[in-house]
């Protein structure tokens, strides 16, 4: 196996943490965002968003290892998670509409 032998040890740690934590963070932000903005009734919004979140996490984990560098993986996953999460949680009264 050449791939990991040639990687810097802590670049590898960066990718693993991006896949686990960054990936979960993105899934969390994704769920929060779509639990608010999907054009469905509240219980359906939440369920649809929550059920899809695992696919987002898997895609994020794969991306964390496909990205050009660990830093870039963290930047993209963390940035997206932050934007989606903030847009979800800072939507005021609207987020709890029925």
């Amino acid at each position: 196996m050449i791939p990991f032998a040639s990687l810097e040890r802590w670049s590898l740690a960066g990718r693993i943490s991006a896949a686990l934590l960054g990936g979960y963070g993105l899934a969390y932000g994704f769920t929060a965002f779509f639990s608010v903005y999907l054009p469905l009734a509240r219980p359906d919004r939440v369920v649809v968003a929550s059920l899809s979140c695992f696919a987002v996490w898997v895609a994020a984990a794969v991306y964390a290892f496909a990205a050009r560098s660990a830093g870039r993986a963290w930047l993209v996953l963390g940035g997206l998670a932050l934007v989606l999460g903030l847009a979800g949680f800072l939507s005021g009264e609207w987020r709890t509409r029925p």
Binding site: Y28, A32, V46, S50
Partner: peptide, 28 residues
């Protein structure tokens, strides 16, 4: 993993139900 989604991914209940698990389960 979807079976335990409400444990693994609490974001939806938190954002749309203000984190009130009773209200969440009741309505969902």
């Amino acid at each position: 993993v979807a079976v335990f989604v409400s444990f693994y991914m609490p974001a939806g209940a938190k954002v749309a139900y203000g984190g009130d698990p009773l209200a969440f389960f009741h309505e969902v």
